[in-house]
Amino acid sequence: MLEIRDIAKTYPTAQGPLAVLRGVSLDLAGGTSLALTGESGSGKSTLLHLAAGLEKADSGHIAIDGAPVTGLDDAGRARLRRETVGIVFQQFNLIPSLDVGRNLAFQARLAGRADPDWQAVLAERLGLAPLLARYPEQLSGGQQQRVAIGRALAARPRLILADEPTGNLDEATGDAVLDLLLALVAESGAALLMVTHSARLAARLDARAHLHAGRIGAEPVA
């Protein structure tokens, strides 16, 4: 489903070029989940951003369902984010001017795949049904992250990319949110690539990959 081959990414910095990814490869099959772990600055988020088409790799190859992501122009990558992937950010990134109902439906409507029944199911499962008329600023962190997950799933994407989705939540709320995410991903048949710091949370996914100094390496001993 997701195929990443020999990806490299370097950022210019005041101290000179900083190689964040140095030839990373991994595969993710449809309907499975993979936890990407690693210390701060190891390149986890960068790899996720490259897979989402948020950034372009310097070299290497990424494909989703066989369609190449690397080499797409700005508009092509925007279409990919709109129609193929669903992204869940650590900071929620909801649209503050839209109410919960509209936030939930936003990406599905962008993709032209709005499905009110599925959205109603999501709202119900995520416990958002009574909150649809509220605005993001009127929600708790856990509620906001549930809206973000619902938004990512509403368009029934083939691939869910989650960047530390529970990083801003307390442990109990984080666990509850992850339960929901995993259950809904399984129901929807999508693949999930999740970046996390937590070995405990990573253990709950189907597979794990550990990034160290820009390369996939052995998992640290817990």
Partner: peptide, 14 residues
């Protein structure tokens, strides 16, 4: 910062 999420959700910068 307000527009970045929309870009991430698939609207082009242009």
């Amino acid at each position: 910062g307000q527009l970045a999420p929309l870009w991430a959700l698939g609207l082009t910068r242009r």
